[in-house]
């Protein structure tokens, strides 16, 4: 069963989706005309050309750096806060509704506040990206820590594990799959937040290029950048999803092996 056939199956769906999306894009182009939606082939050629240009790279680096820093804060801080909130019952109960309310509020309205606090530039973008990403990471980690099977902890105590050993051999394997799901969502939201931050009051980065392209009515550039970001987002998400599935699958059989 596992072999060429399975491989073909894995690749068939994404390829079909990609082909149909490009086809849809072409159809939209035929309907809307060149001034609204440029055709796929010239746009991709334009994107390729743009990536080669020296003046494009600083923008890409700016966005990339902002995103990576925001991601590091969201993941590191989120897991840390989540572990604390999950480990202490009352603190978790106090914080959870506040976090959920914050999660569903349009955080973009808070962006001016962040701009005032951090000033224009990189720190504000990083803070805004991290603000978007950190909440799901906290919520997922908190749930993961809360739902650790008490039996595992008791078994650990029976085997006289030190606290460090309990953490490494019991808590980490038990919580990792769910925390990773949170990190995956945090990844997407951090990217969203960073992009949002760049679209408003920014002087560098891909978002800034998008906004200048609107003023110039440069549809080709808008589409190129949007496609670049989407391809990156979808690719990264697919990779994370694959790891995620593997972790969740790994969690079950291990429990069977050592009853």
């Amino acid at each position: 069963m596992r072999g060429g056939l399975l491989n073909l199956r894995i690749w068939r769906d994404p390829i079909l989706v990609a082909i149909s999306l490009v086809a849809l894009w072409q159809v939209l182009h035929e309907i809307a005309g060149d001034s609204a939606v440029t055709a796929p082939a010239p746009t991709l050629a334009h994107l390729w050309e743009m990536i080669g240009q020296a003046r494009f790279l600083p923008h890409l680096r700016e966005t990339g750096l902002a995103f990576l820093q925001a991601l590091a804060i969201a993941c590191g801080g989120g897991v840390l806060i989540g572990v604390v909130l999950g480990g202490h019952k009352l603190t978790g109960e106090v914080a959870e509704p506040i976090l959920v309310a914050l999660y569903s509020v349009p955080k973009i309205t808070l962006y001016p506040v962040i701009l005032l606090l951090f000033g224009l530039g990189m720190p504000a973008k990083v803070a805004f990206g991290a603000l978007h990403g950190i909440i799901p990471v906290v919520l997922f980690t908190m749930n993961a820590v809360r739902n650790v099977n008490r039996t595992y902890l008791r078994a650990g105590r029976a085997m006289r594990l030190t606290p460090a050993q309990t953490g490494w051999y019991v808590l980490v394997p038990a919580t990792l799959p769910e925390i990773f799901s949170g990190l995956r969502i945090g990844f997407s939201l951090t990217l969203l937040g960073t992009m949002l931050g760049e679209l408003f009051a920014s002087q560098r980065g891909l978002g800034f290029l998008l906004m200048t392209a609107i003023d110039l009515h440069d549809v080709k550039t808008i589409l190129s950048i949007a496609v670049l970001i989407s391809v990156f987002a979808i690719g990264a998400n697919a990779a994370l999803l694959a790891i995620d599935k593997r972790l969740h699958r790994g969690a079950a059989p291990e429990a069977h092996e050592k009853p």
Binding site: V37, S188, M195, L199, L210, V219, I234, N237
Partner: peptide, 25 residues
Amino acid sequence: RAFSPFLAAYYAIPHFAFYPLLIVI
């Protein structure tokens, strides 16, 4: 089957990057 991979990846895309395009259209 045709749409589910597309739907699974949907929320990974930062949609606001497409807002400029929507304004142009």
